[in-house]
């Protein structure tokens, strides 16, 4: 384990209005998303951020797991409870989440990240960040949104089999990264992007598209047993992937996307 996360240093760096003003720091939890989704934990402050040095079962899509070395990276989740955020198009929020991380990696560490639909962040074709959103509904009324971000920061190497080759900020920059500053920057950028999603979602979609190298490529979309082949035309106004197949145009709402061939 590298240096422990310094909470007071983080607060000194934090320049947000509300996001992350309530930070819950924990050495270990099952998953930061689960922590905030679980109402038993009674976290009811909008904008709360939970940061864990170690997740015993960090989550990905369905049964997928997010692996991260203890104390080296940033695995955190943000809680949204207010209507102005809950009423936003969740698909656009999803894209905005990867865009926020990509923008910070670019401005703070001079990397050239790109985004992969729906919300991975890649650097040099390797995965540096994974994002998982979870929402809670009572019947059909949304009452809780949790955005979980796993960003590989200071991990120097990865062992094991991964769906996509991983990398970290340290591996890409050859420097040990100030995690407190990086988290504070991401939260700042995220707060700004939330305003953009509110007032100019089309700008968010445009910025996201600019960072997505797959648009225009022949791709494969795998979902369960099914696999679709076609050209990634664009993302539409709702954030869906528009796939041009031989049979026609498909509007994709989920699946694993990869470049064909």
């Amino acid at each position: 384990m590298d240096e422990q996360f310094d909470i007071s240093k983080f607060y000194l760096r934090l320049d947000t209005e509300w996001l992350g003003r309530n930070l819950i720091y924990t050495e270990e939890t099952s998953s930061t998303n689960s922590y905030l989704m679980d109402k038993e934990n009674k976290v009811n402050k909008h904008g709360t951020v939970v940061l864990a040095e170690k997740q015993t079962s960090g989550k990905g899509r369905l049964d997928r797991v997010w692996y991260s070395n203890e104390g080296e990276n940033l695995t955190f989740s943000m809680l949204f409870l207010k209507k102005d955020i809950l009423s936003l198009n969740p698909n656009i929020l999803n894209l905005a989440s990867s865009l926020a991380v990509a923008n910070v990696l670019e401005s703070l560490h001079f990397l050239k990240p790109n985004v992969k639909w729906p919300n991975d962040v890649l650097v040099n074709g390797k995965k540096i960040c994974g994002i998982l959103l979870e929402a809670g509904y009572a019947g059909s009324t949304i009452n809780r949104l949790v955005v979980g971000i796993g960003l590989n920061v200071n991990q120097a190497y990865f062992q094991g089999n991964f769906m996509m080759e991983p990398t970290s900020v340290r591996m890409e920059t050859d420097t040990v990264i100030d995690r407190e500053k990086l988290l504070a920057e991401i939260l700042k950028r995220y707060e700004e992007l939330l305003e953009k999603v509110k007032y100019a979602p089309e700008v968010v979609l445009k910025e996201w598209s600019k960072k997505c190298r797959m648009i225009g490529d022949r791709i494969e979309v795998k979902r369960g047993e099914e696999s679709l082949d076609g050209i990634f035309d664009e993302i539409d106004g709702d954030g869906y992937l528009i796939l041009r197949t031989k049979q026609g145009t498909e509007r994709i709402s989920y699946g694993d996307v990869s470049v064909s061939g």
């Binding site: 899509r61 979870e134 929402a135 509904y137 989920y254």
Partner: peptide
């Protein structure tokens, strides 16, 4: 009960937990 999770609906890597409201 009201609040019991009934299912999950996935859209674009957004997992939606649907709870009963009754």
């Amino acid at each position: 009960g009201s609040g019991t999770v009934l299912c999950l609906i996935e859209a674009m890597k957004l997992m939606n937990e649907i709870e009963s409201d009754v």
